[in-house]
Design a protein around this nucleic acid. Structure first.
Lengths: 383, 383
DNA sequence: AGTTTCTTGACAAACGTGTGCACGGGAATG
DNA sequence: CATTCCCGTGCACACGTTTGTCAAGAAACT
């Protein structure tokens, strides 16, 4: 095993190691430049570069470039305990809400030389736990998680591992971690008030799963808005899908109409559910917005192109990702974070799926409508 | 966590290292189990476990669980030269074609315990090069790239680094790397033949950028199909957007109609461009499919919900990702790959954006139409 | 009983990099 | 000219694993 001189000692190493044919190391560069490799290390590290003479830096860099040297991030990470890696966990990349968030996060972290790894949970708590575990094993410096439920046990796993984590999109309402979300309740209030302004009174909610904050808060916002407007005659109804999917929306809408044939407007928990509602309405030959008005949420891609163009509540998804990244970056650097509980404001986009209701033709009705409208506007403004 | 006895030697280490407060190592487990750490390593490694007695394995596993031990992937990767990491490069995660591909890849690699890192190039060659470089530095065992242009210099960088890479979606037509794509030319042929069957003769192509294989091959397919049908009177026209976006589609459609007011059908390079066309048609008050028929490509999400429901060519995006993953996994394992040049078949989905053309009201016209129709069907079947 | 075979666990050498410390030489100062 | 100081470089250890080698003990065979 004592090799004569400098025959690379790939004798004893395992066959797996052999195949890394030609990756250059810091030692190769040092040999080329005729210096010690610690000098190379310093010369190539911007933070320690000031310890090295300029012409030496130049020599080292020339050799590095000539040899096509690429630093081994794993070795560096092992030594420094900084992997320059962050993890992003979403329920399903195929859900059009998530890609813009992930995209923004990747952008923010690419700017500081970090790499982003992603994982999907499909809303399975066990898969989430497994994912968090794998990511921590992998050495991520931080985690941005879009799948936390309220009081999610996954949070404990993260804080126990002492790894910075920020919740995005969904709010686990945990005192232990920062979160960036959109005001889901407010969004639904905007929707209900908008419908009330248009004269609707029999308003239904086609909600999503209630065990996640988005579904839960949207339903609560819906109820609260209806309560506030109860004196104007607004009466709420609600059905729920088991997931935020088109199919669940379609099915929920069917149940809704079977039990409440007299509703005139639907506030969907998100655009997927709204599209499902739309599909059911079309299948039943019910006109939207002619007979039933519809409001979605999130303003997913193409929502302005569907028929009718969907009135919806826009969610600043990219901003969600950016803000979460800013917080996580601060946590990683150890900088104190100024505001670690960010709630972004949703905005209503009035398009074509909501129509003013055809009120019963009484003489007083229009007066009442106008009064209600004014009342609504005032409340709307105040909140 | 403050250990009374065995103060870990964090004296000489840098402050950065101090903060890894409590991550347990293989040594902690060994100490707990009262054995040498190499025994722990083997006991926890399924492949070497057979070298250790069963009750020892049990003891080690118990200690590992008790201490909450998590293997340090970076150290393992450094030693074994296997990072259990793959990279995926797309142009833009915000483009709805990509998420299903990435999702499928993540699924396939999660199954074998690999982690997936993603990056966006926005179609900038320099950003792609930088990304490939960073990923290789990071130690990815393989790369799946959806952004390769024809004869892309990025390929050379990968093969030079001796790292397995497979192209997906776009085909760089390189002899050096495997690829998985959809038959873009065939897709456009399907579209043109479908339109011809419906009586269209003045058919235009609103294509995407010609420097990427998708845009290029789709245009070629379009031209080829028109040539085949030239004897039936099919005459082609084409304009191109500078990117596969709604805005470019809208703008290109405007130019198209300005110069060719007599066309009756448009084959768009993808659904984004198609939606852009639709938007322009609506703005101009031109009915689709009443006056102009439209075919898209990729069957992106919600294409069945827009108005009119878009006739389009479906691309098996998830299958694209899965097949690419299979190939890459084989390459990583060193297994020979059976077929490294996979071309998936596109399928036409006939919906509402294509209508049979209203032919000039001559007596012979219907005969001609029928004849053409028959003719087209025959050709269609043969290909 | 002695020798061989087999099992089991310990030892130590890497993987490639970062960094505290020591050392050498030249400049500056007395 | 001698001493001090400082700047640039080399040295060696550590980060946490994996794994070839080997010694010690038990079991089996001659």
């Amino acid at each position: 095993m004592a090799m004569p001189k400098k025959t690379k000692n790939t004798k004893k190493t395992s066959p797996a190691l052999q195949e890394r044919s030609s990756r250059k190391t810091i030692i190769d560069v040092a040999k080329c430049a005729g210096v010690h490799w610690s000098t190379v290390s310093r010369g190539l590290n911007p933070e320690k570069r000031h310890l090295i003479s300029p012409e030496m830096i130049e020599r080292v860099e020339a050799c590095a470039k000539k040899l096509g040297y690429r630093a081994n991030a794993m070795a560096s990470a092992l030594r420094t305990q900084r992997s320059r890696t962050v993890g992003v966990i979403v329920s399903n990349l195929g859900d059009p809400v998530h890609p813009p968030i992930v995209r923004a996060i990747e952008d923010r972290f690419a700017e500081i030389g970090y790499v982003t790894i992603v994982g999907n949970t499909d809303n399975h708590p066990l898969r989430q736990a497994a994912l968090i575990d794998r990511f921590i094993q992998q050495g991520v410096e931080g985690l941005i998680v879009a799948t936390f439920e309220r009081n999610d046990p996954g949070i404990a796993a993260c804080v126990e591992a002492n790894i910075p984590v920020v919740a995005v999109f969904r709010d686990p309402e945990s005192e232990f971690i920062p979160s960036v979300r959109v005001d889901d309740a407010k969004a639904m209030e905007l929707a209900v008030h908008h419908l009330a302004e248009c004269g609707h009174r029999q308003i239904a909610h086609v909600g999503g799963p209630q065990n996640v904050s988005t579904g839960y808060h949207r339903y609560r916002g819906f109820r609260r808005a209806c309560k506030v407007l109860a004196q104007d005659g607004v009466t709420p109804t609600a059905v729920f899908g088991e997931a935020f999917t088109v199919e669940e929306g379609e099915f929920a809408c069917e149940r809704l109409l079977a039990e409440n044939p007299n509703i005139t407007a639907i506030v969907a928990g998100n655009d997927m559910l709204a599209v499902g509602c739309l599909r059911h309405l079309r299948n039943r030959g019910i006109s939207c917005p002619g007979s039933i008005s519809l409001v979605g949420m999130n303003d997913m891609l193409f929502m302005d192109a569907i028929a009718p163009a969907l009135t919806t509540i826009s969610t600043p998804t990219a901003e969600l990702g950016t803000q979460a990244s800013h917080i996580l970056i601060a946590m990683i650097k150890g900088t104190p974070v100024q505001n670690d509980r960010i709630v972004l404001k949703p905005v209503l986009l009035a398009r074509d799926s909501v129509a003013a209701i055809k009120l019963p033709t009484k003489t007083r009705s229009s007066d009442f409508s106008d009064a209600a409208k004014r009342e609504v506007r005032i409340r709307h403004r105040e909140s």
